[in-house]
Every structure is written in structure tokens, then in C-alpha cells.
Amino acid sequence: MLALGIETSCDDSCVAVVDGEKKVLASVVSSQVDFHRQFGGVVPEVAARKHLEFLLPVLDKALCKARVDVRDIDLVAVTRGPGLLGSLLMGMCLAKVIAITCGKPLVGVNHLEGHLFAVLLDYPEVVPPFLCLLVSGGHTELVAVEDWGVYRLLGRTRDDAAGEAYDKVAKVLGLGYPGGVIIDRLSRKGDPARFFFRGGLEYEDTLDFSFSGLKTAVIRTFSGFSEKQREDPQVLADLVASFQESVVRILIKKTIRAMESTGYRQVVVGGGVAANSYLRQKMQEEAEKRGFRVYFPSLSFCTDNGAMIAVCGLYHFLCGQRDSLSIEPEPQLSL
């Protein structure tokens, strides 16, 4: 059994081939970061045009690397949403063309569910129930995965996503894009205790998040700096390290609270922010202290990728899902 996974919900064109044992034969991602860097973020129309340019070479490379012919594929899984409409359309178009020309079944996949399934690519033995902390540029959610396909939303951000706060802080501080990676790297040289930023809803009895106030507090602190302080790399490193400390502290605090309320013993972290080294380290420490198991997908499966779409599509295919060629992207799809 071979599943082709196509993912184009945001800025990366991703194609992967995964077999029936959830083994990744190839996973290719066209990092478009270079194009977006000059704009300080993802520019939607640029993203759609770049998909058009990259998607076919990425598909070729994935098939070549997996050493399979497109006719040997058993199903085509494609991200249906949520995401940017223009970008989603590109992936869906390619998936439909393959489905028609090669006579293969088409399976539309929810991008967020794909992130939940990503853990299986490294840890195929994981079985629900588990808690999932889904944290990226567009999402910050705590989801109880009672079973595959049975999800209960426990909490989510009420304003900005954690990754969005990273990107916006990085932009104001003039650090560039992608904000998450840059702040993570710069923070290693900084003192996380130099500044204290209180997180929104941090001490409140809710599993919801709020990162807008934290973002504002960091920007305000920066605006209050003297010219000399702004040019001091150590001050800047301390500031972003303190910001990161707050984000990670809040994410972990809410995760622990959700673990306590569900009684689950395992937590899966997914989404682009799951690649953050400080979050990985702190969450691991906390898990060891409290005796629960934490799973982080390997770095390339935290960020958007086709393999998670393939493995999620494979699951639904085996459950009987077949989508018609008339399915449309759903930019606002939720879990």
C-alpha cells in the first residue's frame, strides 16, 4: 500500500510517499523561506504563485526518491483546509489531476488532523487516548484525542497564535523571518530571567491561551529602550529569551493542567512551534518530573509536510473514505 500526500496550505509545497507500515519513503518540502524573508512573512499571493512553480518538481523529486512510479500509488491524500485559499487550490488541483489521469482514489485531509497523525511517522506505536498540543503560526490548541477521529477541543488561543506572536515580535525587533527559528537561536545567548512577562490567562482557570498581551508587553519594553540598548546584542538576546521563556512557560502550564483534567498519561506536541528547542527541552523535563510520556515528531514532521497528510489520508482510506473530484478547499476548516 502506497499513499501520496500533498500539502500546500501555507507557504511550503510538500509531497511525500508513505507506505502501509507508515514508513516514509520520501518527504520533500520546497522551503520557500527565501522568497518570504524579504517580505517579513508569508505573502499569500506570492505563496500561491510559488506553489505553481514548485509543486511539479517537488512531486518528481518525491517519486524519484521513493523509487515509485505515480501509477503505483494506491491513493492520493491532499490537504483540504484550513489554510490560504489560493495555496490550497494548487495542491488540490494537482491531487485531482493525478486522481483522474491515473484513476486513483482521492482523500481530502484536514491539515490539523494531519499534525495529530504526524507523531505516527516517528512513533507508529502511539495509540490514543492522548493529549495533543497543537502549536503553530496559525493555531494554538489543546486537543483531547480520545481515539483517531474523535477529538475534543479543550482550549485554544483567544487572540494570537503562539507562532504568530513569535513572528510579530521578530518583525518589530527587526530580526527577520521566520521569527520562531531566529528567536529560538538568539535566545540561547540570552538570559530568560532578565525580563518578566506575564502571560494572558496564565493564572486563570481556563485551558485557553492568550498571547496578544504578551506580544504587546515585549514590544512596549523594546520601544522603551534607549538607542544604545537597542543596538546592544546582549540586551536583545535577553529580551527574546525572556519572551520565549514566557511563551513556553504558558504552553507547558496549560498542557499540565489539561493532562490533570483528562487523566491522560501521554502528550503529543505538533505544529511548527513544536520544533522549538526550548519548548522541547522544558516539556521533556516536565514530563520526566511528572511521569508522563511526551512525543515530539522529528523536526521535519513538526513543520508542514506531505508525510503527515499521507499517513492521515491512509487511515481514512482504510476506514472507507473516498472523496469525489468535486471537493473544494475549505479555508476555515476546523478539527
Partner: peptide
Amino acid sequence: RSPTFALIHEYLQGRVPLYHMDFYRLE
């Protein structure tokens, strides 16, 4: 919530539909 990433959020549960957009990322 912030629509920066998704660009448009539609809220249809009220008396009148509210369409919440964000041009932050648009050039």
C-alpha cells in the same frame, strides 16, 4: 481571534454576520 494567519474569519452566529479580516500580511 486574530485573523493574521487565516486572513478572514467569518462569524455567522450573531444577529448580523461579521467578517473579520486582516491586511497585515498583504502587500
